[in-house]
Each structure stands twice: as structure tokens, then as C-alpha cells.
């Protein structure tokens, strides 16, 4: 075990050749190699503890971005599905434009151009940039889901006297949201991981802190290993949560 981990360490022990076939002497003290392993695990633990406050920031950025993206996605998705010429074009341009830009570019534009004009902290400009980006993808998710609701539902809603708007919001949208859940759960994990990109504007989230640990300890594997572990935990947790919601909101047609 220790040896396996040591391969990734910066220390020179990978050059040590263990060719003595004699059984190792039992001792109350761990061998040299094992001591190094213990130190490495302690370092990892230390890295984990240092990065941990970033987890809260990562989660906050992700939640804000998802919330903003959800609102944008639903509104734009509805515009694309039911809007007139103008609304449909606006939503279409938004979706195509944003989806064709790398998220980092959007983050930079928002931080260096727009945040200059309306005094925005790196945290919020990062979260908003991610939200704007996610909104475009969610727009497509909801547009697809809206189209997946059978047209007969709209006809039935109109037949009891609902306006098109009323029918879209009270009959179609609740069903579309349920149909969109699996794709939306996927989007959650994507945004969670994209949230690491806001480190470029100095938001002290997981990635930023991991890089700090890496630079100051010269132990990139411990640092980014700890970060990876956190992302893994967050993704698994989000997945479980969304599975539960999905099971509860399942729509049988």
C-alpha cells in the first residue's frame, strides 16, 4: 500500500531498490518507508482540512448557478416552445450564443467587463456567469421536455377554457419539469464540476484552495487528491438526493 502511494510522491524513494530477500526485522517502530507513508497521509488529511472551507463556497456557487440557470432555463425554454417570433428569437440567440462560448470566457467577460461597471464580488460574478451558462443548457433541457409532453394535454387544457399561457404554466410545465428531471440531474453534476472554473477569478473554492496547498507543499497529488475526493463526495450526494426526488415525482403517462 505504502509503496503504491509512494510512486506518486515527489520524494526520491522511487529510486530505492529493495532487493534484499531477508525477512524484515520486526520492530516497534515503523520502517522508513512506512513512516513516509504515514506522513503522506497526515499531509493529505491536512490538505483536506485546509481545503474544507472551500467546499461550502463550491456548494454555494453551484446552488446559486443552478437556481439562476433553472429560472433562466424554464423561462427561455418556455419562450422557445411557446413564444412568438420575438421571444423565440431572443431565447434562441441566448441559447446558441452562450452554448458556443467556453464557460471560462463567460466568467472572464462577466468579471472583467460587467463586474467593473456594477461592482460585483468575484464570488457573485462567478456564480452568475455559471448560472448564465447553465441557463442555456437548461433552456434546451426544458424545451425538449416541453415538446415531450403530448400535445393532447394542451388541447384538453384549452378545451376547459384555459388561455395558452395558463395551460402552458399549469398543465404543461409541471409535466415537463418531471420529464426533465433525469437530464437536469446530469446538469447538476456538470455545474458542480464547472464551479471549479471560478478559481480563475480568485474565488476561494475547492480548486483554488487545492492549488494553494499544492504550491505550498509541493505535494500536488495530496492536494488535488483531496479536492477530487470532495468533488466525488458532492457528486454522489447530489446524485442520491436527485434520485429520491425523481422517484417521488415520477410521471406515469
Amino acid at each position: 500500500m505504502a509503496r503504491g502511494w509512494a510512486i506518486f510522491s515527489n520524494q526520491a524513494d522511487r529510486t530505492v531498490i529493495h532487493h534484499d530477500a531477508t525477512p524484515r526485522r520486526r520492530s516497534a517502530w515503523p520502517a522508513r518507508r512506512d513512516k513516509r507513508a504515514i506522513l503522506w497521509w497526515l499531509l493529505m488529511l491536512e490538505a483536506f482540512r485546509f481545503i474544507l472551507p472551500g467546499l461550502g463556497i463550491t456548494v454555494s456557487v453551484t446552488l446559486i448557478a443552478l437556481g439562476l440557470g433553472l429560472a433562466l432555463g424554464i423561462v427561455m425554454g418556455m419562450c422557445r416552445a411557446y413564444g412568438g417570433m420575438v421571444l423565440r428569437s431572443i431565447a434562441g440567440v441566448y441559447s446558441i450564443l452562450v452554448r458556443s462560448l467556453p464557460v471560462v470566457v463567460i466568467i472572464f467577460i462577466l468579471f472583467f467587463v460587467i463586474a467593473e461597471m456594477v461592482d460585483l464580488s468575484p464570488f457573485f460574478s462567478g456564480a452568475i456567469a455559471l448560472g448564465v451558462a447553465s441557463g442555456a443548457y437548461q433552456c434546451e433541457i426544458f424545451r425538449g421536455a416541453i415538446h415531450a409532453v403530448p400535445n393532447s394535454q394542451m388541447v384538453a387544457a384549452r378545451a376547459i377554457g384555459m388561455s395558452r399561457f395558463k395551460a402552458a404554466t399549469t398543465i404543461i410545465l409541471p409535466q415537463a419539469v418531471r420529464l426533465a428531471l433525469p437530464a437536469w440531474a446530469n446538469e447538476v453534476t456538470l455545474v458542480l464540476k464547472d464551479s471549479s472554473l471560478v478559481y480563475v477569478i480568485g474565488v476561494p473554492e475547492i480548486m483554488r484552495r487545492a492549488q494553494y496547498v499544492s504550491a505550498s507543499t509541493m505535494e500536488p497529488f495530496a492536494a488535488f487528491g483531496a479536492a477530487a475526493l470532495m468533488y466525488l463526495l458532492l457528486t454522489l450526494l447530489a446524485g442520491r438526493l436527485l434520485e429520491k426526488i425523481e422517484a417521488r415525482m415520477r410521471l406515469d403517462i
Partner: peptide, 16 residues
């Protein structure tokens, strides 16, 4: 339409 009830061949109940 409020004053004219309609019943469909395929029921068209609201699934949710």
C-alpha cells in the same frame, strides 16, 4: 370554451 364541455376519445387527462 368554458361554456362548452369537451370529452375526448383518448381521455386526455392531465397526467400529473
Amino acid at each position: 370554451r368554458r361554456r362548452i364541455g369537451m370529452v375526448f376519445q383518448e381521455f386526455n387527462l392531465f397526467n400529473h
